[in-house]
Design a protein around this nucleic acid. Structure first.
Lengths: 214, 214
DNA sequence: ACTAGTATTCAACGATCGTTGAAATTGTGA
DNA sequence: TCACAATTTCAACGATCGTTGAATACTAGT
């Protein structure tokens, strides 16, 4: 029975995800979303309570799965080191690699969602609260793991290091094309392999220098 | 003669800067801006061509000065090393320190502007193009300096390293309050001294590990 | 085939949007 | 003081906004 219903609801969510990611919450009208979803305007209010609720559902649709696989990646790393502690680079890899894997498997499905997260993360109004709501449990687990890998690190250095990581991560996944312009074509925003080779190296070095010798 | 005129124009720019930073371009109406500026709606179209032009002027008002002092900071570092090359940390310091100095001197004047830049940097639609327009000449100068400090670094590593820096920098200056939530009050988004102690250390380590041994 | 609930269409509401033209006011130089 | 330009006020335009209620079509289970 929930066949065409789910199909329509998902088409709306897909269109909303794409357009919200491109233009932001206020930059898109419900009419534009429903037009892209090829459905009547009022269907938005049959399937969702309001435009804000639609936005929330777009976010919630994927966040649980995302947190699950990243947590799983972390526990796998930890189990591989039952005696010693995992390295900083391994922990950061567990945090970032699953995201890149999804992007590599189905770019169009995940890129818009990541762009949405990047915008939220950098939005001064509600960004901090929303990101905390969606990701803080997972992030706290990762910070716990990092604390073990960096034994004599104080909390302030650790949290600031994560903050720098968060900024680098979200901008990179925002795929704004900036690096394409800046590098004159040497680098591409969508070159997942290039990112995969470098991001965890750069970030682990930052953690280790800031958190290890203090 | 341009006394009260400039006063009104600047009041509009101030109000627009604050509101655009908080809610984004589409999230604020011209009426809201003019109400905050305590001026009639149509005055916006006397002083500016359109809402988009108002936004552009908000950006342009400070970007030139910003680029000047950062370039000056870089040349000062370079002149201090007339024989050898400056360290990576010194170069990154010249890139980030002037921004923090302005924030420390007059937080309310610059914080909204930085928030605006953070949002632009992470906006997938026009973000890459706008950031390149405003900052690429300056950034290219800094990358040139970094290339000298990291002699056997390839361009791809260098550009990606800068990209990570850019993400960390803009998120940090977005002051979203995320780190306040995550750290449970241990860290504060607006603690400039804490940022000043850590950001260049973290980022320089990333550059050096990624760009030095490859 | 009938009914009941689910899904979709259609038309419209008041509010607010960006923008404009013309009138009124203020300030400036002769 | 007078003319002229710069600035501000006032009223309104068509378009689009988020949202809703009622009517219609569809899809079960009986």
């Amino acid at each position: 029975m929930p066949k065409q219903k789910q199909a329509t609801r998902d088409r709306i969510l897909d269109a909303a995800e794409t357009l919200f990611a491109q233009k932001g919450f206020e930059g898109v009208s419900v009419r534009q979303i429903m037009s892209a979803a090829d459905a009547d305007v009022s269907l938005a209010y049959y399937h969702f309570k309001s435009k804000r609720d639609l936005f929330d559902q777009v976010m919630l649709r994927r966040v649980e799965f995302l947190n699950e696989i990243r947590l799983q990646a972390l526990t796998e790393v930890e189990e591989r080191h039952s005696d010693d502690a995992p390295t900083v680079e391994e922990i950061i890899g567990a945090f970032t690699q699953p995201l890149m894997q999804l992007l590599a498997d189905d770019h169009d499905k995940w890129s818009h969602y990541y762009q949405l997260i990047a915008q939220i993360n950098n939005s001064p109004e509600q960004g901090g609260a929303l990101m905390s709501r969606y990701f803080d449990p997972l992030v706290s687990r990762f910070i716990e793991a990092l604390r073990k890998a960096l034994p004599d690190c104080n909390d302030e250095d650790l949290y600031w290091s994560y903050h720098f990581l968060s900024g680098a991560l979200t901008l990179t996944f925002a795929e704004t094309g900036r690096i394409d312009n800046l590098s004159g074509g040497v680098c591409s925003s969508t070159d997942i392999a290039a990112i995969n080779d470098r991001m965890h190296v750069f970030l682990a070095a930052g953690f280790e220098r800031l958190c290890q010798k203090s």
